[in-house]
Each structure stands twice: as structure tokens, then as C-alpha cells.
Design a protein around this nucleic acid. Structure first.
Lengths: 189, 189
DNA sequence: TCGGATGTCTAGCGGTGCTAGAATTGTGAT
DNA sequence: ATCACAATTCTAGCACCGCTAGACATCCGA
């Protein structure tokens, strides 16, 4: 009946409510503050309801990560298509750093917390799409090297800059010098 | 009296016992398995004893991280001095990846878990020494760029490779291609 | 209207980091 | 050798965590 559909709709709505709440709480107070109890109180349901949507706390983190990946893909795509010819790499790389800076908790969820997201051949479509965006800007510069390996190296370099920078591991006063150096290395030859 | 010194000696001994136990447990079963209770049982003391040595669980993780940094510095130094002329960067980079691979829990402690270790100007001596080793291999290649910024970019690139690789984020079949590409980028010009 | 399925909640288990206060141990002076 | 004191260690417990069994309420189709 139609009620069935309404129920499913409401369920889906509540699921995104949970994911959004988790994300906001994580950005506001860090992931350790995102507990099932607090999350339940926030969405005004009891704890077991959360377990009817997700297998456990980890699955909620994974969901936030997945949402972030989808978002990230959109950011990449927008940056790449809006960039001047030849400036695609710079635009995407800058977008990567900006995203990591603006959404540190989501970034953390994607790259260090998520454990249920397969990153290999059977990765979710959103993840492959995100990698494809990175591939699109790096592969043309690969020259005679393997374009996949070259892209991975490029991704790793940007990612290292983002993650070390996010944790305060790099000198703030050199912030603006780093990305140009990196871009220079990848485009020079 | 002399007893005082003996006591301090025994205390220091017990402290390294704790750190070593934490490290071994983390490498064996992951950091979440390193609980105060298990740690206490392992060293055959009650939990409060741990708190007479460390401010809390986090401080123990920090201690493991610091020990790892000291070790890492030694590895770098050995790799660099043993390398053939011109091969220093390759040797240190490989040592970095090898260390991350051989001691994933320590690596995690250093770069994602440790929160009490200042990484800036007032970083511990061991950390500055480790960075100095990296600086020694990158700065000569900086050309007309700022050697500090150049070193940070180089470090970030290797670090990205190490951390993404450790978490299974990179294709295993491209493992051996990645480092040569990276070295090529940093030495080509 | 009513029986059954669906959904939600209350209450609780075993575990966590951490700590107050009791108990024990060792020390130095008498 | 004895004793008072200080340092050390332990027992017991708090508040919180993720998670779940079973009671309760609600809604639907016949």
C-alpha cells in the first residue's frame, strides 16, 4: 500500500537526520563526542533506533565518510570544469586542501576513521568517481609513466599536505609556498 | 640516601616496561585493545600505578610515539649515511616506507593518535632531529625554492604514500612503481 | 473491532578511563 | 628492636561507553 512507501520515506528521512547530526556533532566537538547516547538525544529517539538504521557506531561514521566523498567529488568536478585550461590540477589540488580545512571531521572520517569502506576494486561508486576526478588532472601529466601509478603519487602528495597541515604538523608561515612547489614538481617535466 | 636513587631507577625501569608493553600490545592487537586494565594486568600492577607514571591513556600513546620518533631518527640517519652518493633521498624515503610498514601501530601513534606532542617550534628534540634528517636529503634539491618549504612538500609526499598505503588505499600491484615516480619528480630538475 | 505485525522504549550487561580512600609497605629516628 | 611517619600500592567504585533482550505501544489489514 501507499503507507508502506510513506514509512520508507520517513525512515530514509530519519536516516539522513542521523548522518547529518553525527557530522555536525563531529565538526563541532570532535568524533569522540559523537556517542550513541548523545546522538539519540539529539534526534529525540532512543538508542536502539539508531541500531535499526546502522549496524553500530562505526557504520554511522562510514555513512558520514561516504556523504563526504560524494560532496568531495562534486567539489572536484566543479573546480576542474571551472578552471582555466592548464589550471585544472591547481584548481583541484586547492579544492582538496580547502575541503580538508573546512571539514576536518569529515576528512578524518574518510581517511582515518572509516573502516567499512572498501577502497579497492569493489569500492563504492562515489569513491571511484572521486578518484576519477583526480585521475583526470594527473594522468595527462604522466608522460611515459603508468598513469594510474602517477595519479596515486600525485594524490598521495596532496593528501600528505592536507593531512599533515590539518594536524598542525607543518609550518603555518610556509602555507602558501607549499602548493606552488608541489604543482611545479608535477608539471615541470 | 642511596635508596632514593635505587627507587628512581626502578621507577624508570617500570616506566619503560609500560611503554614497551603498550607498544607490543598495539602492534599485536591494535590500539583499541590497549586498555589501562589490560596494560595493568600485563605489567602485573594495579591500574592506579599507571596513573602515577602517566597522566592518562593518551600520555602513554604519546610516550610510544616519542620512542618511535627516536627510533625513526636512527633509521633515517643509518639509511642516509649508508647510501651511495646521490642515493640518499631514495634510501631515506625507502626507510620511511619500511618503518611505516613494519611498525604500523607506532606510525599511527606518531601521526594520528599523539595529541600531546607539540610539532611546532617547541617540539621535542627527537622530533626536530627526525625532521633534520629529512631536511638533509631534500634541501640540496630545492634549487631556488625555499628549502624548508621544499622539504615539507617532500616529506608530505612520502608521508602520503606511507599513510595511504598502510590503510590499503592504494593499489598493491602498483607498489613498486610509486616510489620511483616520486623520486623522479623530486630529482628531475 | 480485533489479531498480528511493526515499531519504539526501558532497563541492563560488560566494558572503558579514571580516582578517592583504605591498606600495606618501607624508612629513619628513638 | 620499636615505633611513628611517609611513600607506595591496592580495592572499590563513579560515570560513561557501545550494544541488546525483552516489554510495551502503535498501527494496519481483515
Amino acid at each position: 500500500m501507499a503507507t508502506q512507501q510513506r514509512r520508507e520515506r520517513e525512515r530514509a528521512q530519519r536516516e539522513t537526520l542521523i548522518v547529518n547530526a553525527a557530522r555536525e556533532m563531529a565538526e563541532a566537538d570532535g568524533w569522540p563526542a559523537v556517542t550513541i547516547r548523545r546522538l539519540a538525544e539529539r534526534i529525540e529517539y532512543s538508542q536502539p533506533v539508531l541500531y535499526s538504521h546502522f549496524a553500530g557506531r562505526g557504520a554511522i561514521v562510514d555513512a558520514v565518510a561516504l556523504q563526504g566523498i560524494v560532496e568531495l567529488t562534486g567539489v572536484f568536478s566543479a573546480a576542474r570544469t571551472a578552471a582555466a585550461p592548464g589550471g585544472e590540477l591547481a584548481a583541484v589540488a586547492q579544492a582538496y586542501l580547502d575541503f580538508a580545512n573546512a571539514n576536518p571531521a569529515v576528512f578524518e572520517a574518510i581517511f582515518t576513521l572509516a573502516e567499512g569502506l572498501p577502497f579497492g576494486a569493489d569500492a563504492p561508486e562515489a569513491l571511484k568517481a572521486a578518484f576519477a576526478e583526480i585521475y583526470a588532472v594527473f594522468a595527462p601529466l604522466a608522460g611515459d609513466r603508468d598513469p594510474d601509478a602517477f595519479t596515486e603519487v600525485g594524490w598521495a602528495a596532496i593528501h600528505g599536505l592536507a593531512s599533515l597541515g590539518r594536524d598542525g604538523r607543518l609550518r603555518p608561515d610556509l602555507l602558501e609556498q607549499r602548493l606552488p612547489i608541489l604543482l611545479d614538481l608535477f608539471t615541470k617535466d
